[in-house]
């Protein structure tokens, strides 16, 4: 077999595309033939040359391609984080909006809803505004019918607001309630 006939086999040998039996034959020949060894070196070099040919990729390559794909509706559009967040926040936002509306439309119920369980002490709820003393009290919101006991308390409000009078009456519960008011006034 002449060297010329080995050429194609050496090419296949370099590419790993010949049988194990052919590999043994080629390697045996290469060991014995200097000119075919030189040929093998050149063949390997041109293969390496192809692999060395590379180019850079433009920074906007991806952006351009994806824009074209989206324009042709070949690629689902990515939702923005804002839209995604809004979607998940929709339910709590709607609940908050409904609650706010409820408070606006129904102020009485709304106020009740934010008061401590059991509401304010009745005394505080129904005490009339004190223009003279300047004490800030919760505004009475309903003209409820007072019980006899409550009427009595209201009738003595001025007395109750006077610490000296309280001492005379010895009403421990009432003293405690208006103690704060006294402090504020001071």
């Amino acid at each position: 077999m002449k060297c010329l006939d080995w050429k194609e086999k050496i090419s296949g040998y370099i590419d790993g595309e010949i049988s194990p039996a052919e590999v043994r034959e080629v390697e045996g020949h290469l060991e014995a033939c200097e000119s075919c060894r030189a040929l093998e070196r050149r063949m390997r070099a041109v293969g390496g040359g192809v692999a060395s040919i590379e180019t850079s990729v433009s920074t906007d390559f991806r952006e351009k391609l994806f824009a074209r794909l989206e324009a042709e509706e070949l690629l689902p559009r990515r939702r923005s984080l804002f839209v995604f967040s809004l979607r998940w926040a929709a339910l709590p936002l709607a609940a908050a909006a409904a609650f706010g509306l409820f408070l606006l439309v129904s102020p009485e119920k709304g106020r009740d809803a934010i008061l401590p369980q059991g509401g304010l002490p009745r005394v505080a709820q129904q005490s009339p505004p004190s223009s003279a003393s300047g004490i800030e009290r919760p505004v009475a919101t309903a003209a409820a019918v007072l019980s006899p006991e409550e009427r009595e308390i209201v009738a003595h409000l001025e007395v109750l607001e006077d610490p000296a009078a309280l001492e005379d009456q010895g009403d421990a519960d009432t003293i405690e309630i208006f103690g704060t008011a006294r402090g504020r006034r001071g």
């Binding site: 070196r41 050149r42 390997r44 070099a45 041109v46 293969g47 390496g48 040359g49 060395s52 040919i53």
Partner: peptide, 18 residues
């Protein structure tokens, strides 16, 4: 030979031949 350091000039020449 497969891992040769191809200079830019040689690469250009090779690309043209290809």
């Amino acid at each position: 030979p497969e891992e040769m350091a191809w200079s830019a000039e040689v690469r250009e020449r090779f690309a043209a031949a290809l």
